[in-house]
Write a protein that binds this DNA or RNA. Structure first.
Lengths: 343, 343
DNA sequence: TCATAATATGCAATCGATTGCACAATGTTA
DNA sequence: TAACATTGTGCAATCGATTGCATATTATGA
């Protein structure tokens, strides 16, 4: 009932040769004769031989595994990044271990540890927002000489290669687009936490206003949790405040969806009364009514880019690697939610 | 630049004891004195010792890793299932390796192989639709005595434990709901492939019609790829056909979204003219206008259930395990897209 | 024909943690 | 005080694949 798996020794015994020869034959070592190779492969197949990567990993110190840490996997953005990483990694014979931090620093520390125990050959991570600025666990990874690449949610506190999109530019493009639609009083929803990505989008918003000579108004900026209910919240407060406005740029698609719901409930027409735009190009944004203007972050490409940076570090065994930063270009996706008539 | 990691031997040397003692101390073996344990833990910490799971895995034959295979990770349903699995697995000290089959049998075969090479302690999979009925790779897994659990997309051809939701019941509930809303001519969109889940939903549809004495009409059934464009396609064909109908039950939320788009373009009012319902409770369904009636499949719970079945198999080392089947109860989520006025 | 080169394979150590068995030191009992 | 228990450690083998070095066999050249 438990058919013990065949090893190279079993193959060796069957052919009256040694395991070394079998190993070399399987690895297509030129020092082994064609005849022997052929015989080895045949017996391997007969015995249903399955190489034991663990043994090889122990010997070589390489597990051929990459650890990925994301806040949560069931977000289209992150799962798409992972997909991008996998595409590159699998081609090179690497597997991927996925871990989730659920936005909590304790979890992050513990999964970093588990990955190190599992002897991954490197780690790619989108970090959690962490007010205590505690990055020891990641610095520990670097200190151990294990390749580390950060993507999307990063910090300059950690000296390692990173991949981000130009969130500043994304924020700028959305704001500029709204301005060009004739909007002059543009509300901005941003995160109540201090993550790089939202800070940058906010900065883009401010700069675009400045460039078009529109005064910045602090009371136009609402902080929330960037989820659906946060967007609803802010929108209700906004409407109660009685402020006049003609557009909302939410740094998150989910919060934008919340805004859309509340406005519909109050019979505010989108985009005629208020133009609306989000950020991330989550799949649902093309399905809302009206479809939501947003910004694509090219998650698959981001994953691929991160994987490429990763393998660069991995390959440059010798010299100390200089941290690189890949910045992807975001793309404004204009949909009906922000298109004013006649424009 | 490459700080070679400390091993138990390093700790042993520092304390002038042997690696065996260190190993036992770290594992809290009662045969080791408290004093020695304390000393060992202290030195371990000083040396920044990180246990090498690979060595332990080789010795024990257990990698503490579970392989999960899904068609694609960037679907809310699958990523949520994975999340459910992780919750259980991590608690028990297991890690999870995620692989994607991209709906292709070749990929499926190859990832099963990679997982076996990585010496995962077991595999959980949602299989690809596979006309050739080629399940050798999975049978091979079972033959090797490696626990295998299938979820959602399964087949009875493979004799192993499974977790599914009662798709039949889900299909029945949706259809019944539409009937109770007064609909009599209910269109059904189903898959053009032969996956268990869609067949079951279809069967539920037929049974509900029968139970309510509504004649089944083959021309009311449309097969498509169950994606947005498939839904659009079928809806366009449906409208061109000139058939009268008062509801659409799509076995997929995405195809339902396609239907919604086409109907809006043609100024058909949902739900007043046509009631609409999907299946899966994808996150976007609550954001469409009108929000979409659908069926929740409880993906996180499905992941947990699958993990529990998995560990049952894993624990019952001795006796041959009898395949179990867990069937989860789906929940009808009624939203505006199917609510006729006055009902 | 003998020395040297080329070819094919074997030997044994190694990666790091675990564990059955042995054994020394101390304690306990009759 | 002899015989046996208990407690704490050490020894050495093991998991399976890899690899530097040694060795055996055959081929080549002078």
């Amino acid at each position: 009932m438990k058919p013990k798996k065949a090893t190279i020794h079993d193959i060796a015994k069957k052919l009256s040769i040694t395991a070394s020869t079998v190993s070399r034959a399987l690895n297509n070592n030129p020092r082994i004769s064609e005849a022997t190779k052929k015989a080895v492969f045949k017996v391997a197949k007969d015995l249903n031989y399955q190489p034991n990567n663990i043994a090889a990993a122990l010997r070589s110190g390489k597990s051929q595994l990459i650890g990925i840490i994301v806040p949560r996997i069931n977000r289209s953005f992150f799962s798409s990044v992972i997909r991008g990483v996998e595409e590159v990694a699998n081609t090179l014979g690497y597997g991927v271990i996925v871990s989730q931090s659920y936005e909590k620093i304790e979890n992050e520390i513990s999964v970093v540890n588990s990955l190190l125990n599992a002897r991954v050959d490197g780690i790619m991570a989108s970090i959690v927002d962490n007010k205590t600025e505690n990055y020891e666990h990641y610095e520990n990874v670097i200190k151990k000489g294990i390749p580390l690449v950060l993507f999307d949610r990063t910090t300059k506190e950690i000296e390692t290669s990173q991949v981000v999109i130009d969130d500043y530019l994304g924020g700028y493009m959305v704001t500029e687009h709204l301005i060009k639609q004739g909007c002059k009083k543009i509300i901005h929803y941003t995160s109540d936490r201090t993550i790089n990505i939202y800070k940058e989008r906010y900065r883009g918003y401010i700069e675009a206003l400045k460039d078009y000579n529109i005064p910045f108004n602090q009371s136009f900026v609402f902080k929330n949790n960037m989820l659906l209910d946060g967007g609803r919240d802010s929108t209700e407060k906004l409407l109660e405040s009685g402020q006049k406005f003609d557009a909302i740029f939410s740094a998150s698609d989910y919060a934008a969806a919340g805004a859309m719901q509340v406005m519909k409930e109050q019979n505010i027409k989108i985009p005629d009364d208020i133009a609306l735009a989000g950020f991330s190009n989550e799949p649902f944004t093309s399905l809302t009514d009206p479809p939501l203007t947003t910004v694509s972050q090219f998650p698959i490409e981001m994953g691929q880019a991160a994987a490429e940076l990763f393998f660069e570090i991995l390959d440059s065994t010798k010299k100390k690697v200089i941290p690189q930063k890949t910045v992807l270009h975001p793309e404004l996706i204009v949909r009906a939610s922000s298109l004013k008539k006649g424009k």
